[in-house]
Every structure is written in structure tokens, then in C-alpha cells.
């Protein structure tokens, strides 16, 4: 699964840009958006293998973004990240189509593994 392309959506620009740089070093080509509207623009302009969305975003929330992405790009795997105390956020149920929740700070190896798993799981779901 070489040449993985990921879109990361997080309003913490220094956090997400560093993660993009680090993922690049680990062989994942990633782009980032700092809010939901910009993420949707980027999804229209380029194709990605997986999207990683922060639960808390300014304006459109992460959950709202996931719902829109699921409708517009039903085959695109989604992973959510959260800065809350618990990785498996108790206040929010995992929205349909979200492969997994990951807590911040992000373990890069775990993130890459989850991305690959999410893509594989999605491929197996295809008819």
C-alpha cells in the first residue's frame, strides 16, 4: 500500500502541519485543512485514500464534516482524532463510517497502521 494519500483536518495548524511533515517522512503523502469548509474544497480538487478528522473544529464540527463526507464520498475511509481525555470519546458515539477514534497526542505508527486498516476494511466492504 505504497503512495498512500491522506487528508488531515485539524484547526491546530502547527500540530497538523508537523504531522503532515512527519507522515511524509514515513511515506504517506498528506495534505491538511484547518476547517471543514476548506477540507471539502480540497476533497473536490484532489483524490485521497483516507481522511483524518479532528472531533472539534471551528464552525462546522468534525461530526458534521464526517456526515457530509460520507454522503459525498461514501467509499472514502475516515478516522477521527480527539483531544479529549478519552480516546474513545464517551460523549459522542462513533459516527457511521468512522473506522476508529485516536487520542491526541498521536502515535504516528498507530495512525499509519489505522489508515492502512481503514483502507483495507473499506476495500473488503466493496461489492
Amino acid at each position: 500500500m505504497n503512495g498512500l494519500r491522506a487528508l488531515l483536518v485539524d484547526d491546530e495548524e502547527e500540530f497538523v502541519s508537523t504531522l503532515v511533515e512527519w507522515l511524509d517522512y514515513r511515506g504517506v503523502t498528506a495534505g491538511y485543512a484547518i476547517d471543514g469548509e476548506k477540507a471539502l474544497e480540497m476533497l473536490q480538487k484532489a483524490s485521497y485514500d483516507v481522511v483524518v478528522v479532528d472531533l472539534k473544529l471551528p464552525g462546522m464540527s468534525g461530526v458534521e464534516l464526517v456526515h457530509i463526507v460520507r454522503k459525498a464520498y461514501p467509499k472514502l475511509p475516515i478516522i477521527m482524532i480527539t483531544g479529549r481525555g478519552s480516546g474513545r470519546d464517551q460523549e459522542y458515539e462513533k459516527p457511521e463510517g468512522v473506522y476508529d477514534f485516536l487520542p491526541k497526542p498521536i502515535d504516528i505508527s498507530e495512525l499509519v497502521t489505522k489508515m492502512k486498516e481503514a483502507i483495507e476494511a473499506n476495500e473488503h466492504r466493496q461489492p
Partner: peptide
């Protein structure tokens, strides 16, 4: 947590 997360990413890189 976001601050620490960023520091953690930079340290990891």
C-alpha cells in the same frame, strides 16, 4: 493537550 501534542510531533519528527 494540543500544545503537548504539537511538541510531541516535533520531537518525534
Amino acid at each position: 493537550n494540543n500544545v503537548l501534542g504539537t511538541i510531541d510531533q516535533v520531537a518525534g519528527l
